[in-house]
Amino acid sequence: MTLVTALISAVVCGMGAAPARAAIFPLPDGDPFYSAPPNIGDYQPGDVVRSRTVAATGFPGATAYQLVYRSTNSADAPIAAVTTLLLPPGGGTRPLVSYQPFVNSLGLECAPSHALFDGGLQESPALNVLLGRGWAVAVPDHLGPVSAYGAAKLGGRLTLDGVRAVKRFAPAGLADAPVGLAGYSGGGMATGFAAAMAPEYAPELPIVGAAMGGVPVNIGKLALDVGANPSPLFGLGFAAAVGLEREYPGVMSLDANLNPAGWELRNRIANACTDQIIAAGANKSFTDYFYGGVSDVSDRQIAVLHENSLEIYPGVPRAPIYQWAGANDQVNPWLARDVAGRYCAAGDRVQFEIIPGADHGTAIAAGAAQAFNYLGDRFANLPAPSNC
């Protein structure tokens, strides 16, 4: 995912003036299970609307549930969200890990609740490691019901409300479970926002630790660092711009800046998963699809970028943090370290590790084992390390 560089370049450079037409939203999920009831606003955030058991394909011995729960979008409107819960064999008290995958897609069929079981989610095998430790694992569809790729603050809220839902779901027996959060790259952004939002948004959740790696902490700065160089993974950047357009349709419209090729690409990938998106925009840059440049970003659009950047978000995690990044990460690891330093100065315990020689793609495996061990120590009530 050297792509994140191209990703943010497209997000910033593709934003224009007031919208001329509506954003391109995904086709609805054909499964009525996902639909919001007419009275979704009557539920409280994290309340379970409906549930079902599903075949735990790829997770031997596990029991799998899917929960529809109430959350809130970036316009403060009630929405229905989904999380998938995996329970290992056995019973009794067990910890809960909410794992946020890096989901780089616009189609609803690409969401974790589908991709966990059809081979589409690259991180699925790692979840068996967590289940093997006897931990319950929740995997939220943290892009939400319109697959708003790039809307990281929404991802944090959906993560926290998903944990609430799992703990309120009586058949799981997790009401008293300690909670850990984990994720990498885009999943790390959702994880980081969940950790930072929790003290104010969900103070009742017993979050004992969060582990996150390769986190882009300021998408606007990343765009300025990267510029407009062509990338084989530029399509993901374009997709992130579309995702923000979906979540903030009155502010982040692409219509005024898309050239004809841009209109065609947006229509073509509106329901696409990661591989299709990458192929569609391979080796392109924003000038292939947009008029204008970085200077065309309005104050309102900058405010949205800030709203979805952990460096700007004022909240500070209460739970201890393990964070890692590759020394050669295309996503600025030193900026992420500065944000960790702000958390340290506010009193949080943070262990920040730089993986020598690793870039954004290779750092995930190098840090994941340490991340899981870190959460295991938090569940065991061991003192949290810190290199603040």
Rank of each mutant, 00 (worst) to 15 (best):
V316W: 03
F286P: 05
R246Y: 05
Q301G: 06
I277F: 11
C273V: 08
E247V: 03
N283K: 12
A272Y: 04
A280E: 10
G262P: 01
D255E: 11
A279Y: 11
E307L: 11
A240Q: 07
L254P: 05
A270H: 11
T287G: 03
G237I: 03
P216C: 11
V316M: 09
N218L: 02
G220H: 06
V251L: 13
L305G: 09
Y248V: 06
R246P: 05
I302Q: 14
S298E: 02
G315N: 13
E307D: 15
L258Q: 06
P317M: 10
L265E: 03
P317R: 08
D255R: 09
T287E: 12
L236I: 15
S231Y: 00
E264V: 12
Y313H: 12
H306L: 08
T274M: 14
E264R: 15
P230W: 02
I302T: 14
P260T: 11
K221D: 13
A256M: 05
N308Q: 04
E311M: 06
S295Y: 07
N218F: 00
N259F: 12
T287L: 14
I278A: 13
Q276I: 05
S285I: 05
P314H: 03
F286C: 08
T274V: 14
G292L: 01
G235F: 03
G237Q: 02
G281H: 03
